[in-house]
């Protein structure tokens, strides 16, 4: 199986981290992975996105123009990437910030009130983890345990007290779809 996805949001929503966690988790499971960020001044205040491939075969093009999966954390990201999704693909979108519904009818669509759930858990900044949980609930491309290992690796030791909270967020996201 090959999962090709674009994760997008505004700078600060943690989409780059989301992508790195998926890539890292895939790597620890012996899968082939790549992570490609958007770069340059467009990141300043604007939207940021990364392209992630998780596969059981060597990754060909790290740049994906027709992703199977898009996670959109804000409206500009959904506007930009909705049309690019392959027919039959998946769109996970942050319905806390995106008020319009997706236009596509030939794809699967999952609305995740990521910021609302994150706020309920007491920290707005883990909305990305809620969305990631929902994505993995729909497409279990890596084990949740591997994501937690990746998180432990990504967070500096003085942030490790946040691990349980992140786990809760992932869990809430997953339960939402499962």
């Amino acid at each position: 199986m090959t999962f090709e996805m674009i994760l997008a949001g505004f700078g600060g929503q943690g989409v780059m981290l989301m992508g790195q966690l998926l890539a890292y988790a895939g790597m620890t499971e012996g899968k082939h992975v790549s992570w490609l960020p958007s770069y340059g001044p467009e990141m300043r205040g604007g939207t940021a996105n990364c392209t992630v491939v998780v596969s059981d075969r060597p990754v060909g093009s790290p740049l994906i123009t027709r992703p199977g999966i898009v996670v959109a954390m804000n409206l500009p990201s959904m506007d930009k990437f909705e049309d690019s999704i392959k027919p039959g693909g998946l769109l996970v979108y942050n319905s806390s910030l995106i008020t319009r519904s997706p236009k596509r009818t030939d794809i699967e669509v999952v609305a995740v009130p990521a910021n609302e759930i994150a706020n309920e858990l007491g920290n707005d900044r883990i909305a990305n983890m809620v969305a990631l949980g929902a994505l993995l609930g729909k497409k279990p491309m890596v084990e949740m345990q591997s994501i937690l290992t990746a998180l432990r690796h990504a967070l500096p030791p003085h942030r490790h007290h946040l691990l349980p909270l992140n786990e809760q967020a992932l869990d809430r996201g997953r339960k939402l779809v499962g």
């Binding site: 790549s34 992570w35 490609l36 960020p37 790290p62 740049l63």
Partner: peptide, 10 residues
């Protein structure tokens, strides 16, 4: 190229 410089792989 810019892609090779910016991307992450194992």
């Amino acid at each position: 190229d810019g892609m090779l410089g910016q991307m992450m792989e194992p």
